[in-house]
Design a protein around this nucleic acid. Structure first.
Length: 297
DNA sequence: GCAAGCCTGACC
DNA sequence: GGTCAGGCTTGC
């Protein structure tokens, strides 16, 4: 499950290994992973040089130049099992390798592999890219306190759902959302727009801290992670709550609990993250966010 | 059957 | 407008 730190790690690897290189030919082996016409995708990438590699939230984008033409952008979303690697062209083709892009003047190629196919690739002009990125909230790693607090203001759902909503704040997935809430000692069901200023601040700091640490560790928190050279990560991130249901809290020893919020499992420590007096659950006739009432009737 | 991220459509 | 259920996909 690549989240911001994993995408950042891939971006850095790509920068290190492919900046300045040119794309030669593009082979789309599974058209479904391309957003838009695959032919146009392949044609607009061929012969372009990698000028820059950037990221916003979990979205990776590569600026591509071709003489006398405006730049175009290869936009990559890894989804949940997506992998972007640079390998020798003759290296054995792993199953679920959907796109191969040969690099000029070498025996290497860029490969996109994705078992679940939740990820995708697209090629956009600058203005299309800007529109695409504008749909995302501020990047979770770069957001200022003010941006963060502003994004939280007035939000009615559970804190957990808010953290995972890419339009509110871009970059967090289930793992780091749970970890940040634990660090800030906030209950996942607390209502986003109603937490105190002090707690919102604590959450901001927790998000920044968790992400910085994970980036430092090269984001190797997820199962399907491979670095740009196709090697599994060398580090493990020590998770405090994620998928530790029933195990003792590393801070207080209480058993970690699991609850489903908006269809996503949330892990938290019932002692360290006490449920606030007013929770999002109390709103509305139907309750909220995955806290389903027993079927009526 | 579950997990994930993200899109669509429904709802208020 | 925001919020949420459902569906997609496939290996465990």
């Amino acid at each position: 499950m690549p989240e911001l730190p994993e995408v950042e790690t891939v971006a850095r690897g790509l920068r290190e290994h492919a900046l300045g290189k040119c794309f030669e030919s593009v082979e789309v082996r599974h058209p479904a992973v391309i957003v838009g016409p695959p032919d146009a995708f392949a044609q607009s990438l061929g012969g372009r040089r990698i000028e820059a590699v950037e990221r916003k939230g979990k979205v990776l984008f590569v600026e591509l130049a071709r003489d006398g033409e405006p730049p175009r952008y290869l936009v990559v979303r890894l989804g949940m099992t997506g992998q972007l690697t640079i390998q020798r062209r003759e290296a054995a083709l792993e199953p679920h390798t959907h796109v191969r892009i040969a690099l000029v003047g070498g025996e290497k190629e860029l490969r996109f592999r994705d078992v679940r196919r939740f990820g995708n690739l697209r090629c956009l002009a600058r203005e299309e890219l800007d529109k695409f990125l504008a749909k995302l909230g501020p990047d979770a790693e770069r957001a200022t306190v003010d941006e963060f607090l502003a994004a939280m203001r007035g939000r009615r759902g559970a804190l957990k759902s808010w953290l995972m909503n890419q339009q509110a704040l871009a970059g967090l997935g289930n793992i780091y959302a749970d970890e940040a809430l634990f660090d800030a000692r906030l209950h996942p069901l607390a209502e986003a727009g109603r937490v105190s200023h002090a707690k919102a601040l604590a959450l901001y700091r927790a998000v920044r801290k968790i992400l910085a640490r994970a980036v430092e560790r090269q984001g190797t928190s997820f199962r399907d992670y491979l670095d740009i050279e196709g090697r599994p990560g060398r580090f493990r991130i020590r998770l405090k709550v994620y998928q530790r249901t029933g195990e003792p809290c590393r801070r207080c020893g209480s058993a970690i609990r699991r609850v489903v919020i908006t269809g996503r499992s949330s892990h938290f420590c019932p002692r360290c993250q006490p449920r606030p007096r007013r929770t999002a659950k109390m709103r509305g006739p139907r309750g909220i966010a995955g806290v389903r009432r027993a079927p009526s009737r």
